[in-house]
Simulated scan of single mutants.
Amino acid sequence: MLSPTRRSFLALGAIGGLSLLCGCTDEGDRDRKQAEDADRAVRIRAVAATDALLASYDAVIAGPGAGQADTLQDLREDVSQHRAALAQGLPAATGSPEPSGSGAPAASVAALAAAERQTAAARLADLDGASPELARLLASVSASNAAHAAALGDTGQVAPAPAASGSPPPSAAASGPASATGSANTSAKPSPYPSPQATALQSALAAEHAAVYGYGVVGALLPVGPQREDGRASYAAHQARRDGWQRLLANGGVSPTAAAPGYRLPFAVKDAADAKQLAAYIETQLTGAYVELTGASTGALRAEGAAALRETALRAVHWGAELPALPGMPSADGAAGGAPSNPSDGTGSASPSA
């Protein structure tokens, strides 16, 4: 039998351990609460801004945009879906038609286009502190806003999210050369990426491998002139992304995924019309990979994932795709962005591209 002193010591030790455990639990609860509060604040701001954008659509449709009412109504419906997604978990009355600092609703189609572009930038500004789930949504909404702005005639640059600590971006622009660190530092062993981030990067790389292959088919069938030049520009953009992700993975201590020996196209491609459809398909499918990369990463890489999502969404529209309201986000049937999945015939991967 243990002596009273020994029993007391063990009992006190157990109580102390329980206190430490409770302390850790309380700390975890506080962290979760802080994260939930941060997401809630972001959602409230985003909903208020979206209400202001909806008010602008209503003003323009009722006035100078009456002649484009059908197009504007379609875009407005997308914005309404943005609001519903952003408002999840918030009280029904959250938001107002004119949040502080928003000013009067847009008075012209050009002003509405500018408002869409500004809204796209505002969603990116909240990326860094958002939870993975909310970051995916913010990036998707921003890409949709940018596509709306382009459809309304505003092709100005969407300001990137503020710089944050993390890996350098692999490219400065869709058509520019990749700018990730080009060679590993041989004097120090690189730090490996966290598993979810490495997995998402590998998926993005696999998608870009397939996109490069697909654009090889596209370019061969487009007629000489502006369309072929557009095809070449898209091909170069995907090569730059592919090369940037490869370097980023290698510098993070991860062996980059290699291209598959071959890829099966999602449908027969025989002429220029089919080639344009294939380009639209490739870009639409890529949105899913970049939504996932945005959610899985942090800092500068998260911002770059959102930029890649925006760029591929804009190219999808350019090639004639009808983007869903939330590009890249799973639809009711589970497909990314509402696009069909691409089966594999065993010669390539079932990656989200041709």
Rank of each mutant, 00 (worst) to 15 (best):
E208N: 12
Y215D: 01
Q227F: 01
A184T: 11
A211P: 05
A210G: 05
E229G: 07
S167Y: 04
V217M: 10
P177L: 01
H209D: 10
A180R: 14
A220N: 09
A198G: 15
Q227R: 11
Y215Q: 05
A173D: 15
L222K: 09
L222G: 02
A198S: 15
G166A: 02
A188I: 11
T199H: 10
E208R: 15
G225L: 02
D230L: 13
Y235W: 11
E229F: 04
Q197N: 05
L222W: 04
R232C: 04
A180Y: 07
A210C: 10
A178F: 03
A236V: 13
P170E: 01
L221F: 00
S191R: 12
S175L: 09
L205N: 13
Y215I: 07
A163K: 14
A198R: 15
Y215E: 06
S234H: 04
Y213P: 10
A237D: 00
S203N: 13
P196W: 08
Y215N: 05
P192Y: 04
R228N: 10
A211T: 04
A204F: 00
S171R: 15
S167C: 01
P196F: 03
P168V: 01
A210T: 00
P177W: 00
A164M: 11
S171L: 03
S167I: 03
P190F: 10
A200S: 14
A174S: 08
A207P: 11
P192V: 07
S187L: 14
G219I: 06
G216N: 09
A180T: 06
P169E: 01
N185M: 08
P223L: 00
P192K: 09
Y213G: 08
G166K: 12
S167L: 09
S183K: 12
Y235V: 03
A173F: 12
E208T: 09
V217E: 08
T181I: 11
A206F: 07
S203H: 07
L221E: 03
P194H: 06
E208F: 07
A198P: 15
P168D: 07
P169M: 02
Y235S: 08
L221T: 03
A198H: 15
K189W: 14
D230T: 09
S175T: 07
G219D: 10
P168I: 02
S183E: 09
A237S: 06
G225A: 01
A233G: 02
S191H: 05
G219L: 12
A204S: 06
A164R: 15
V217L: 12
A172L: 06
Q197Y: 02
L222R: 11
G225Y: 00
L201P: 08
G225H: 04
T186P: 01
A178Y: 10
P169S: 02
S175N: 08
P162V: 04
G216V: 05
S179L: 01
A210E: 07
S195R: 15
P192L: 05
A237E: 00
A184V: 13
P196Q: 11
A163R: 15
Y193W: 14
A210F: 02
L205R: 15
S187R: 14
P190Q: 14
P194R: 15
A204G: 09
P177E: 01
V224P: 05
P169G: 01
S179C: 03
G182V: 05
Y213L: 14
A178S: 13
A173Y: 13
S203Q: 13
S203P: 01
S187G: 10
R232E: 09
S165Y: 04
N185A: 06
A172H: 10
